[in-house]
């Protein structure tokens, strides 16, 4: 007999209780799988692509060029006195991370049927791995942003320290929606078609091409409540480009809405998780 007998006892019942702390602990024990799945996604994405990681740059960069030409040159969209390419890229960069995470997490469960139906692991790992993989693209694209900041000689201020906080809020929202969409897509495959449309509409409803300032003052707090990404994007611009602290009303309501969305999504995910393997 071996000495090494792991003593963990797993109990499977029809309706397992939802315990966030226990889930997080379990995800931590499976962290190796999280890294590997994310690594796999990144590797597969670039393995058969000629330009490889350059795609991560090309996506926001080409949008930046197109927006600059059409919205800034032709339509004279204001950019708060910041050079428009920088103004657009500062929003396109986090937006790309957000939309990329969502569109790849939608199919994270349904695209891994062979794993979901055959082996056990916390299912959250799959959408989380997709978000992590999108984070790699985000990292690569950030290098270009640093280059742009240097090119336009934007001074680095202490307000940059707010950036991780804003990113944190964005991550809460991203993880929440990623869990929600991936789980809903197991049951209703319509989501795969609906979400790309939603993302497109959402992008134009978010101050990416235009500054928040063109929205009339009295609607602004409503926008911040309805669209947490508006507050998040505006906060990035404040700390990165304007050297100002984020508008606390904007970031605060974004954080609150994000936490609510994340909690509700998590509960939905855990409630449907027991039947994933049966209906996928």
């Amino acid at each position: 007999m071996r000495e090494r007998q792991s003593s963990t006892i797993r109990v499977f019942t029809p309706r397992p209780p939802i315990r966030l702390a226990a889930s997080v602990r379990e995800i931590w024990t499976f962290r190796e799988l999280l890294w590997q799945l994310a690594g796999r996604e990144v590797r597969i994405r670039y393995k058969q692509a000629l330009l490889g990681a350059a795609w991560a740059l090309l996506q926001p960069f080409s949008l930046m060029i197109v927006f600059t030409v059409f919205f800034s040159r032709f339509l004279n969209v204001p950019s708060d006195g910041v050079p428009y390419p920088l103004f657009a890229y500062c929003a396109l960069l986090p937006w790309g991370f957000f939309s990329g995470s969502l569109s790849s997490s939608i199919t994270s469960l349904t695209g891994n049927v062979h794993l979901v139906t055959k082996v056990y692991f916390p299912r959250e790992i799959l959408p989380l791995a997709s978000i992590l993989a999108a984070g790699v693209d985000f990292g690569v694209a950030t290098l270009l942003f640093v280059g742009l900041l240097a090119f336009y000689r934007v001074p680095a201020t202490s307000k940059l320290l707010f950036a991780p906080l804003i990113l944190g809020v964005q991550l809460v929202l991203t993880v929440g929606l990623g869990l929600l969409f991936s789980a809903v897509n197991v049951k209703y495959r319509d989501v795969r078609h609906a979400v790309p449309l939603l993302i497109q509409v959402w992008m134009f409803a978010t101050p990416i091409i235009y500054p928040i300032g063109i929205i009339p003052e009295r609607f602004r707090s409503l926008v911040f409540c309805l669209n947490p990404m508006a507050g998040i994007i505006d906060s990035y611009r404040s700390v990165m480009l304007r050297g100002l602290p984020p508008d606390m009303q904007a970031l605060g309501s974004a954080a609150l809405v994000s936490v609510i969305v994340a909690c509700a999504s998590y509960v939905y995910f855990k409630r449907t998780e027991p039947v994933f393997a049966d209906i996928i």
Partner: peptide, 9 residues
């Protein structure tokens, strides 16, 4: 394997 959950029990 924990892939699916029991309906009862």
């Amino acid at each position: 394997a924990g892939v699916t959950r029991p309906t009862r029990g």
